[in-house]
């Protein structure tokens, strides 16, 4: 795969019985970019995310994630079907994290616990050393808490550390979900409609935070979003889906002026469609 890309999706097709949710979808996500996936409702954007993060096994096609520090690229489908130990948790450990359109925090756990549980890759998970209270285990726990507070500070949630996640106001829950995704130590973070339900001020704040994540914390961002001013403002590359297929891809200007995109969003007059 191209060394400039972090993720390469090729000919991805996802079928649910007779319904084709994604048909022959191919796109790239460049290292260190902010890439957006847009399209009308029901275009199949979330299905793409579900395939990327190992929620679904794609019916056809491949999803390659560049290897970490010069390692060979990983294929997401291969991680899922690995004999005996395969599963979508391996995708997270390979470095893909995500948030959900409808927030999925562990509501009954405190904010800090939500972040600790995401650090499975870093924490010593040996039960015995935990039971014996060994130094290494305690050190790992302290590091985990430190990392959790680091992300709480970045997301400006520090004062909520010990509240239950389910009690937080909506906007803070959204930020906590991003903080939790970051705690897994990802190289690619997939945000599914992060601005849904936020007011204009919160949206502007979110845009700033997403750029901050990419600029300061060197993580590649792939986002699904309906708010066009947010998408056009922060993304460098935009992929447009409609009816499960890629209809356009390029930088914001190209996409904005693409006739296919305008037709998909606004619909075409009957005559125009006839003429085309």
């Amino acid at each position: 795969m191209d060394p400039r890309n972090l993720l390469e999706v090729r000919n991805l097709t996802m079928r649910f019985g007779g319904i084709v949710a994604n048909n022959d979808v191919s796109f790239d996500v460049a290292q260190g970019s902010i890439t957006a996936l847009i399209g009308p409702n029901g275009a199949g954007k979330t299905t793409v995310f579900n395939c990327l993060t190992g929620f679904y096994r794609a019916s056809e096609g491949t999803i390659h994630l560049a290897g970490d520090q010069g390692c060979a690229p990983l294929e997401v489908g291969g991680l899922l079907s690995k004999p005996l130990i395969g599963g979508s948790y391996l995708v997270a450990r390979a470095g893909i994290a995500r948030t959900f359109q409808n927030i999925r925090l562990f509501r009954e756990m405190s904010v800090v616990e939500n972040l600790l549980v995401a650090q499975h890759n870093h924490l010593d998970r040996n039960l015995l050393s935990g039971a014996l209270g060994l130094r290494r285990y305690r050190q790992a726990e302290r590091d985990g808490i430190e990392r959790a507070f680091h992300w709480l500070r970045v997301m400006d949630l520090e004062e909520d550390a010990n509240r239950l996640a389910g009690e937080l106001p909506y906007g803070r829950q959204r930020r906590l979900e991003i903080a939790r995704a970051m705690c897994t130590g990802p190289r690619l973070v997939c945000l599914d409609e992060p601005a849904a339900g936020l007011n204009p001020r919160e949206k502007a704040d979110l845009a700033e935070r997403i750029q901050h994540l990419r600029n300061e914390h060197r993580v590649t961002v792939l986002l699904i979003e309906h708010d066009m001013s947010l998408v056009m403002g922060i993304s460098e590359h935009i992929v447009v889906l409609d009816h499960g297929e890629v209809i356009a891809a390029g930088d914001p200007q190209e996409v904005k002026n693409s006739p296919a995109v305008i037709t998909a969003y606004l619909g075409a007059d009957d005559d125009e469609e006839g003429a085309a």
Binding site: S88, Y89, A97, H120
Partner: peptide, 8 residues
């Protein structure tokens, strides 16, 4: 969700 956060 736990699975997506890397928990086996």
């Amino acid at each position: 969700m736990a699975e997506i956060l890397g928990i086996n």
